[in-house]
Simulated assay, not measured.
Amino acid sequence: MPTDPAGDARNADAVPFTFAGIGDEAGPGLTAQLTALRRLGWEGIELRTVDHVPVADLDDDAFHRVASALAEAGMRTVCVDSRIANWGRPVTGCFDDDLAELDVLARRCRDLGTRYVRVMSYPNDGLDEPAWRREVLRRMRILTDRAERYGLVLLHENCSGWAGSSAERMLTMLDEVSSPALRLLFDIGNGVPYGYSAYDMLTDIVRHVAHVHVKDADGDEHAPVYTMPGDGRARVADCLRLLLEHGYTGTVSIEPHLAVRPHEHRTDAGADGVSTFVEYGRRLERLVREDVLPRAANRPVGAVDGGRS
């Protein structure tokens, strides 16, 4: 539990959104992931990998052990982070891999009690821009049609892919696909490594955001240096305030990228991973309590197109 009771993120009167964390940013094993979240007093986990294995690739026995452990711990799964359309699956790659992963995750999300699956929008691989656009939209229509039939919502992250760093393309994708099974995941910290202003992007897409990641960073796209929330130049407090003012009541999930960075194969930080994750979460609670909430202007101005899973 947090050492400062005033920072309890479950006090709905103070904080209208829910705090959670991407578990493998605390450590590869589920024990480390649950330990970190318990210390924070949080009840939401975002699942990406367990023991270095993506959720869709866990064998059935391993997955059932994970699901049982989460249920025993009273831990709610807020989202599953897939590899669908991510940096490792270019637009010319085998589409069947993404469809197969979605089929597996449909069953596993049902067992975990979540309908949210994080996706991206396919990095290019030699196509001209019109062809890249056409193929991305074709695939996203098929994926969202299947997701809708499964009762899932695909959350597109502002990361790798055709629509990853452009609010205009994200809005085009939402309009062209036109499905309730496609919404946006906004990662506050992705603007620095990808070379754009996250806050400026958010002003254009805020009403379509259904899930939020918190990272912060200094440096630039050539050499990003990840920091505690509020210490970098991602404008974490400003972004959270903007979301709050537009009625956001979904989940805010931390992805520190400090002691542990699974995407860079930095996964064995031991106790440092858990302690850094916990410190990060407490810093975020304090930032929200001391900077975001007191300075939010006349919130909310309207409900966002999203909400809790």
Score class of each variant (00 low, 15 high):
Ala131Asp: 15
Asp111Ala: 15
Val236Leu: 02
Val260Phe: 05
Ile142Val: 15
Phe95Lys: 03
Asp125Gly: 10
Ala269His: 06
Ser68Lys: 13
Asp57Asn: 09
Asp200Ala: 13
Ala62Gln: 13
Cys94Arg: 12
Leu240Asn: 00
Asp272Val: 05
Gly74Thr: 05
Leu37Met: 13
Leu240Gly: 00
Leu184Glu: 02
Arg183Cys: 07
Trp42Tyr: 11
Ala198Lys: 01
Ile142Met: 15
Ile205His: 00
Thr227Ser: 13
Tyr194Met: 15
Thr3Gly: 14
Ala147Val: 08
Arg118Ala: 07
Asp96Phe: 08
Arg89Asp: 06
Arg39Trp: 07
Val104Ala: 13
Gly219Arg: 05
Ala20Gln: 03
Asp128Lys: 08
Ala210Asp: 12
Glu129Cys: 07
Val15Lys: 03
Gly88Lys: 14
Ser165Thr: 14
Arg241Leu: 01
Pro5Leu: 12
Ser121Arg: 02
Ala14Met: 12
Ala67Pro: 07
Ala210Pro: 06
Arg139Pro: 08
Asp61Gly: 15
Leu99Pro: 02
Ser179His: 06
Glu279Trp: 09
Arg233Thr: 13
Asp268Glu: 14
Leu143Ile: 05
Ala62Cys: 08
Trp162Asn: 04
Asn124Cys: 11
Val274Tyr: 03
Cys239Gln: 00
Arg83Ile: 09
Tyr150Ser: 15
Asp24Pro: 04
Trp42Val: 15
Met140Ser: 05
Asp24Arg: 01
Leu99Phe: 10
Ala163Ser: 14
Leu240Glu: 00
Ala297Arg: 13
Ile205Arg: 00
Ala69Met: 09
Tyr226Asn: 05
Val136Ser: 08
Leu284Ala: 05
Ile84Asn: 02
Phe17Asn: 02
Ala210Trp: 04
Ser68Pro: 02
Glu148Cys: 09
Arg282Asn: 12
Pro123Phe: 05
Cys239Met: 01
Asp97Trp: 10
Gly189Ser: 10
Ala62Val: 06
Pro123Asp: 04
